[in-house]
Amino acid sequence: MKRALLAICTLMLVTGGCSHKSKPQPASIQPIANGTAIVESSGGKQIGYIGMPLDQPVVVQVNGASGSGVAGAAVNFSGPTGVTFTPASALTDSSGQVTSTVSLGQQAGRYKIVASTPDASGKKLELPLDEIALGYQQTLGAQLNGQYCIRCHDPESTPLRVSNMDNLSVKPHPFTEGDTLNKISDADLIAIISHGGPALNKSAEMPPWGYTLSKSDIAALVSYIRAVADPPYESGGLVYAQK
């Protein structure tokens, strides 16, 4: 009997794929206040790895009519199969915020998670957030990017990595800039990475990497660029959302 049930469940999972609804969250948390809006404080659009907790927690804030945080409002996190939240539901703290650590699912792709809170009338206010899980190939791309590309392509500096972008006369695009990068075909991306800017009639300040990196390294860079694009690249992998 147990087996039959399991088989049926698995079948459902397979047919429904990843859009299968996750377990209902325990509705044990009773709000002592209600807000009129739920907004993101931080933690959306992170780039993480399959099955792993995201680097930063997701922090959301419930606001009242005055626009400031409401303490004691119930926030509930939900997401597609495989995504876990610790905690999955909680009451907002004195500044109206809830912090949750999010682990992504087992497959590479874009995960749509939702933070929700009931308003005074019991209607659910929802805040959708996107998180990205990198698989094997994109992780390779991410590592190579960190080694070879990021100092020119990312305007942000860290203590161990000073950005070189300001020193360039033509500004490269951060790889998250989907508006620009999504318009470049895979073949053109491979061409510019392999042979440098002049391959696409662009600046030679973009060096050629084809004699330093292997073909599969360059394919990995392209798959990373596609995975992190914002707005998303149309066929940039799967999107997981709740039904």
């Binding site: 399959i50 792993m52 087992q106 497959q107 190939q137 390779l140 080694q147």
Partner: peptide, 23 residues
């Protein structure tokens, strides 16, 4: 093996540090 530990599979043969297995 759960996905988050999948690089353990690589580590059985790869005793060096493959670029693609940061964890």
């Amino acid at each position: 093996l759960p996905a988050k530990y999948i690089e353990a599979g690589c580590g059985q043969c790869h005793l060096e540090k493959p670029t693609a297995t940061p964890f």
